[in-house]
């Protein structure tokens, strides 16, 4: 046990000392995950709301696919995107492999099904009369869209948080597409994998604490938001 406590004590020192490498790693995690979640939100929420309104078998099939993709293994996404972005792949000339952009693309693919899929369920749970009422009051498509958005806001926010949680905590995509380059594509999770390999547990624990703290802050913000608008 001493060994673990020593690690925790050292890790607190690293956090308090605001080590430069440590801060850079945390910043890369936040930046990449915020970007990919924002992208997945902007595209996934409207898509989920749109598909939830459809009654066709095709739409139901797409929802099933979305739900399946929610549990897409990160390494599968990593491998897929890798083969496209490598210089030998179809998008090779963009030179995106081992960049933050590649990480954002991979994480976007992870977050999109979660955000879209959970948006479907949060909208599907609403009273069907909302739309009829909105329409009868003369609302156009954009206005009734905003109406739905307002009614389903907690469910959708929860969807966005779930998406963020997934990409912030994943390691497969970041490792394969980012390459764990120090100060550039090294994020919290890939750094933890590296430090554990090296047997440097304090640095890993420090990063783990940050990971948990960010998750906690996001959840506190969410419940504050819900309290306030009640």
């Amino acid at each position: 046990m001493d060994y673990i406590w020593q690690g925790v004590r050292d890790s607190l020192q690293i956090i308090a000392g605001l080590d430069r490498e440590f801060l850079a790693t945390v910043f890369v995690s936040l930046k990449v995950s915020f970007l990919s979640t924002a992208l997945a939100t902007v595209l996934g929420v409207p898509f989920g709301m749109w598909i939830a309104e459809k009654r066709s078998p095709g739409a139901r099939a797409i929802i099933t696919v979305l739900n399946t993709l929610m549990s897409l293994p990160t390494v599968v996404v990593g491998l897929m995107v890798y083969s496209f972005l490598s210089r030998r792949g179809p998008l090779g000339e963009w030179g995106l492999l081992y960049t933050q952009t590649a990480m954002v693309i991979g994480q976007f693919i992870l977050a999109f099904p979660i955000i879209a899929g959970l948006s479907v369920s949060s909208v599907a749970g609403l009273d069907k009369r909302i739309r009829t009422t909105a329409r009868s009051l003369g609302a156009d498509t954009a206005q009734s869209f905003r109406m739905f958005l307002r009614e389903a806001r907690y469910g959708i926010l929860a969807a966005v948080m779930a998406g963020f949680g997934r990409v912030f905590a994943e390691v497969g995509v970041s490792m394969m597409l980012g390459g764990n380059i120090s100060g550039y594509t090294r994020n919290i999770t890939t750094a933890m994998a590296l430090e554990t390999n090296k047997g440097e547990f304090a640095f890993g624990i420090a990063l783990g604490l940050v990971l948990l703290t960010v998750a906690l802050v996001v959840n506190i913000l969410f419940s504050l938001f819900r309290e306030r608008s009640r």
């Binding site: 930046k31 915020f34 970007l35 924002a38 902007v42 958005l149």
Partner: peptide, 17 residues
């Protein structure tokens, strides 16, 4: 709720690579 999207996009811009 439109604000939410605005702030999401703003966030995205802030964090642009």
């Amino acid at each position: 709720m439109g604000n939410f999207f605005k702030s999401a996009i703003l966030c995205a811009l802030l964090f642009l690579p």
